[in-house]
Amino acid sequence: MLLRAEELTKDYGRFRALDDLNLTIAPGEIFGLLGPNGSGKSTAIRLLLGFLRPTAGSATIAGHDCWHDSIAARREIAYLPGELRLYENMTGRQFIAFLSKLRGHPPTAEIDELARRLDIALDRPLVQMSSGMKRKVALLQVLAAHASLLILDEPTNTLDPTMRDQLLDQLKRARERGQAVLFSSHVLSEVEQVCDRVGILQRGRLVHLQKMVDLSEARSIRAYFAETPAKLPELPGLQLRNEEDHRLWLEYQGPLPPLLDWLARQPVVDLRIEPLGLAPIYHRYHGVEA
């Protein structure tokens, strides 16, 4: 495993910001960290970067302890901060060159190729760039670093939809190159689009781990009946989420034909079947009902 966190815990005084995080990320995997503000996402990222000393537990990246051997661990990481602040007195090219040299890899011609693909005017001073353009420059620096693990804290903030798609495309390319990606986000659709696995944090605890491939087989079924069925069929993976006024909201993970057979025998007035997606799972922990 490229990243391994074991019982990683961080307290700020009496407040527990991260509680017993156990997590692994393999090379070539995109992992999404979900959770509202204050759920511990940034604390987890800061612990991995060696900015904070864990209260308990440990984390390693490529075998290097994130606190005791943080420089070696950070050599494996390229990081895009959530609240982006760049050196405004530099041009994009100078900024990339500075950070590349700090990593011990002087910039190559690949930078220009990436800049062209991301539509960045590298020779413009950063102070004259929009926040979205600055984010693209910072993203370019992350992609050019050729690190084993890319950590992106809410990377699509301030990006327009076209750029957001380009960024997600770049993450997929990074996965193809064997790089792992850990990124936090509030936007469920983009997490669904690229992630292999997703972790949901709630008040510092990792409350749910979801393989996206499993989710692609799960469906949300909303059916409106003339008369509510007396009982549901006994199909493995079928759950009743809600029932209200002859309307049933079901979640189902399994082969469709048996369920469709049962529905065909019921007085169905209206029916909607769609991929389950992350939203119902996320709202289970962070929605109004949570």
């Binding site: 970067l49 900015f51 420089i71 070696a72 950070r74 050599r75 990481i77 990081y79 901060p81 609240e83 982006l84 602040r85 760049l86 050196y87 950070l99 700090l102 990593r103 011990g104 910072a138």
Partner: peptide, 14 residues
């Protein structure tokens, strides 16, 4: 204060 320290310390730098 300018917020650039986070970016700097994220590099493999003591």
């Amino acid at each position: 204060d300018r917020g650039t320290m986070e970016l700097l310390l994220a590099q493999p730098l003591a």
